[in-house]
Design a binder for these strands. Structure first.
Length: 714
DNA sequence: TGGGAGTGCTTTTTT
DNA sequence: AGCACTCCCA
């Protein structure tokens, strides 16, 4: 055990060995957060304060849960597999599977991912003859999820106008439909579980008594429902140990409430707040910059990172003429770094939005620098994989209409929109699933759909009793999917992915060991929804890492490039228009980005950028001004951007935008009495009618008539 | 049935 | 610009 606590610094040690109390650990970036969390669990167990049975540890991502489990097994000699360590969704799923009857769910309930949910909502709107332009499906999904995340059912939803009344009605219809089909969406997993525990006293008492220690990772990312769920489980005297960093809260946009952290401090932790401020990751200058940026945010719990490492290198800045120019600079630097012996995998290119990767990728590709892009389609979200899963889902639960519709005519078997419309009407009248209603169809539709039903029945009979990988293989082959992709021109890769799915099933069985009869398929399908799989399989060997700032959270690299640091892009204009809270979230995002770097940090921006097919003229991000000048090393090889209006270097040479009026040009920096300094990004009309669009950065994008607006060239 | 043309959107993302 | 989605026609 002395080993266990060796090498912890004072606050870390203090946190790990805290007595049986509620506590909040404010863990700055790179301060050993995961280490404290896992060591705390190990310490509690090895001192006999709790057995593996009494610990509940919650994370947000599967990756974090896996890492925790892995680290824990190196610290204590027990098998952590039986422990309740997992994501909020994973744990709720586990609980609901164990008590499916009490929760009012079929034993084989399936989980809808976001795409399935969207498809379901679209279908619902169509069946109910609701105008999907007036009620956009995406927006409706968001409406439903937001309500569930607030713990609000349709029956309790607040109605304040006709529009909302209709949406609440649709929410209720959606709930009914899910219940009929025996499927749950992501938010439902949590809400269902919460309601179950709330309603069912013996069950609640059981779990409250069982878990005496609850540990929460990344509390700043919890939403209201997750927080309520934790409080419910902790209601029997369990002690909650929450770890988080309010400065790294970057998921407000999807319901995370940083306020939960403050509430937790007030309601639970009290004086037991421990700050981990010593950073073991970055050199001094990088931390100083990060601190300087984040201190502009208000409403912080307060924290200041420090390091024993030296100042290290200055922070390198580059301002390109264009996004292409910026990309060229970056790739040149990367080549140099690699020549000097830096491993490409230790170099990260970060950007605010994924669309920015294109230029960078292009340049990397041209210069033969291997790279890997994170984000994008994941394995279980691929079309062919989802098709195969849909057949498998139908074997387990024929009432799953989403799965039914996905494959009823794929590969095509002559079932057109007309037949399906008939079927949907019949099903609606019978208040039954499509699968069930199929038997009542007459005429041609009855024949074609009937053939499909027989196919599924045959598949079910043929696969009964087979081991899971063989079930998967059989279904892929006999459903006609394999044949379909064999004849398709671009089908090769899809076939490989289907093979990969069979492998995944085999690996799954090996990992999970024997699972009860028929349970293997359900568990496998659950895995497919809950863990959509690694981002793009591509080889990462010796490749430079490209990702959005969001996906970089939790990672670290020797060298980090933060690109596209322009007003309107980072901070993003949509966020800025949300007001102060939006801007503060962008600033936290910047803080996360900066603290990813261990040794060297580059900040770059461009004066012009292709966005949505148009060239935009940009001002450097306001965040750049928040970093003390003394930390910066400006790397522009060319002279600093010229005053008045700069000449932009394009591919072949130098051009200047033609004058609009009054000597003003697109690209020119001007000052306005009210809005401040901005850049002219577009113009229309001439003479007295001339208007210009100006990017005023924090004050937004404005169209101004030249006749009235007083613009002074800067 | 399937492809081609036209339309609209476009921040971040896990489960 | 690029992509997803819809609609319409052969």
């Amino acid at each position: 055990m002395s080993d266990l606590l060796a090498n912890l610094n004072t606050p870390q040690l203090q946190a790990v060995t805290l007595p049986s109390v509620h506590a909040l650990v404010l863990a700055g970036a790179g301060s050993g957060k995961t280490r404290v969390l896992t060591t705390r669990i190990a310490w509690l167990m090895s001192t006999g304060q709790v057995g593996p049975h009494g610990v509940l540890a919650v994370t947000f991502t599967n990756k974090a849960a896996k890492e925790m489990t892995a680290r824990l097994s190196t610290l204590v000699p027990i098998n952590p597999r039986g422990m309740w360590i997992g994501t909020f969704h994973g744990l709720c799923n586990r609980l609901l599977r164990a008590h499916y009857r009490e929760a009012g769910l079929p034993q084989t309930f399936q989980i809808l991912d976001s795409a399935d949910q969207l498809a379901m909502v679209k279908r619902l709107l169509k069946n109910l003859n609701v105008d999907d332009e007036k009620y956009p499906p995406r927006e409706l999904c968001h409406f439903i999820n937001a309500h569930k995340e607030q713990g609000v059912r349709a029956a309790q939803a607040e109605v304040y106008d006709n529009y909302t009344e209709k949406r609440v009605e649709l929410y209720a219809e959606y709930e009914n439909q899910c219940n009929r089909e025996g499927v749950v969406d992501f938010a439902e997993l949590l809400l269902r579980c919460y309601e179950l525990l709330q309603r069912n006293e013996p069950l609640r008492k059981h779990y409250q008594a069982r878990f005496s220690y609850i540990l929460v990772d990344e509390v700043q990312d919890t939403n209201k429902l997750q927080y309520a769920w934790l409080k419910l489980l902790a209601g029997g005297g369990a002690k909650v140990f929450a770890v988080g960093d309010d400065d790294q809260s970057i998921y407000r946009f999807r319901g995370a409430e940083v306020g939960n952290m403050r509430d937790f401090e007030r309601e639970y932790a009290g004086d037991n707040v421990i700050r981990l401020e010593q950073n073991y990751r970055s050199h001094g200058n990088i931390l100083t910059a990060a601190n300087a940026i984040i201190k502009n945010n208000r409403e912080r719990l307060g924290k200041n990172l420090w390091t024993e490492a030296g100042d290290g290198e200055p922070i390198r800045c580059f301002e390109g003429y264009s996004d292409l120019d910026e990309a060229r600079f970056i790739v040149e630097e990367i080549r140099e770094l690699v020549r000097d012996g830096v491993s490409p995998t230790q170099i990260a290119l970060l950007y605010r939005s994924n669309a920015q990767s294109r230029v960078l990728e292009n340049e990397l590709f041209t210069k033969n620098v291997p790279y890997k892009v994170y984000g994008g389609l994941r394995f279980f979200e691929r079309q062919e994989v989802k098709h195969a899963l849909a057949y498998l889902r139908l074997l387990g639960n024929p009432d799953d209409d989403t799965a039914f519709l996905r494959v009823v005519n794929f590969p095509t078997r002559g079932i057109g929109a007309r037949s399906l419309e008939n079927l949907q009407v019949t099903a609606h009248q019978m208040n039954s699933s499509l699968y069930n209603a199929a038997a009542s169809l007459t005429g041609k539709a009855g024949q074609t759909v009937g053939a499909f039903i027989r196919l599924v029945e045959t598949l079910r009979q043929e696969t009964a009793g087979l081991p899971l990988p063989e079930v998967v293989e059989h279904v892929i082959e006999k459903s006609g999917l394999a044949q379909h992709y064999r004849t398709e021109k671009e089908g090769q890769e899809r076939l490989e992915n289907l093979d990969e799915l069979i492998n995944a099933a085999a690996t799954f069985i090996d990992d999970e060991g024997a699972i009860g009869e028929g349970g293997a398929l359900v568990s496998f399908l659950t895995l497919a929804s809950l863990e959509a799989g690694e981002h793009q399989a591509g080889e990462g060997q010796g490749a430079v890492q490209l990702m959005s700032v969001h996906s970089a959270k939790g990672l670290e690299f020797d060298v980090v490039f933060i690109t596209g640091l322009e007003q309107g892009l980072f901070p993003h204009e949509n966020a800025v228009s949300e007001g102060k809270d939006g801007l503060e979230e962008e600033r936290r995002l910047m803080y996360v980005a900066v603290t990813r770097a261990r040794r060297r940090l580059y900040l770059s921006c461009a004066q012009t950028r292709m966005l949505h097919g148009q060239t935009r003229y940009c001002m450097p991000s306001g965040f750049l001004d928040e970093i003390p000048e003394s930390l910066l090393l400006k790397l522009n090889k060319k002279a600093a951007p010229a005053p008045a209006y700069p000449a932009y270097v394009s591919f072949g040479g130098v051009y200047a935008e033609p004058a609009v009026a009054g000597g003003l040009r697109v690209g020119q920096t001007v000052e306005h009495a009210k809005f401040g300094v901005g850049v002219i990004v577009a113009s229309e009309g001439r003479g007295a009618d001339a208007r210009v669009q100006i990017n005023f950065g924090a004050s937004g994008m404005k169209w101004l008539a030249l006749e009235y607006a007083k613009l002074t060239p800067v």
